[in-house]
């Protein structure tokens, strides 16, 4: 739900301000790749109506966000491709593919794709965090969006602890990816929490 909320917050922000200054389209592209790799099972496996609905919403809303930022004026006119230039194709995609291949529990296409998607998701926030560090001052809605985008994985960790004890659930790759993903946010969270506590604008060091 937090993940969904972060997407809705971002959509709302783009629609309301008609500007995507401070938002990394490259992060959304990483997530689009993550979702496409992971949700292949939509074609051959049914888990629940909730599960299917969320997958469809995540994929379609993320592609819509990319479309808005890259191609749909007036939002696309505010997209700064020079600032948002983190080369994830080199730094994230390659390593995620290699890690996905060597750490997959089974050498099947869906399993390798799933594993690669977990590793890629764990670092997908990097283009966004690096963009914010260049700008330093973060708009309120952008701060909420990034905070919810980080918080959802933290809540997965709580759920994993519960599931481990309640049903003996084990998911080593998911756990490791989740810890890396949450760890990358800790620094941002600190400055976000401080800005909320003191009721000031979020300014990154």
């Amino acid at each position: 739900m937090l993940h969904l909320m972060s997407i809705l917050l971002l959509l709302w922000k783009l629609k309301k301000s008609k500007s995507c200054v401070g938002i990394s389209c490259r992060m959304q592209e990483c997530y689009a790749i993550v979702f496409c790799l992971r949700y292949l099972d939509l074609f051959y496996q049914f888990i629940s109506v909730y599960n299917t609905a969320m997958k469809v919403v995540f994929i379609s809303s993320t592609f819509y966000l990319i479309f808005l930022m890259r191609f749909q004026p007036p939002v696309s006119a505010t997209y700064d491709r020079t600032a948002d230039s983190f080369p994830y194709e080199q730094y994230l995609l390659g390593p995620a593919a290699v890690l996905g291949f060597i750490s997959a529990e089974e050498w099947s296409i869906p399993e390798i794709f799933w594993t690669a998607s977990i590793w890629l998701e764990s670092v997908s926030i990097l283009p966004q965090l690096i963009l914010l560090q260049q700008l330093r001052e973060v708009e309120n809605l952008t701060a909420e969006f990034v905070a919810t985008m980080g918080a959802y994985r933290f809540f997965y960790i709580l759920n994993w602890i519960y599931r481990y004890f309640a049903e003996g659930y084990v998911n080593w790759i998911g756990w490791l990816g989740g810890i890396v993903q949450t760890g990358l946010y800790v620094d941002f969270f600190y400055y976000y929490a401080m800005s909320k506590w003191y009721g000031q604008k979020l300014v990154l060091p």
Binding site: D41, N51, F58, E105, E106, S108, Y156, G174
Partner: peptide
Amino acid sequence: EEADHTHDEL
């Protein structure tokens, strides 16, 4: 034993 590779999380 066959590993179960159903991923029920998002």
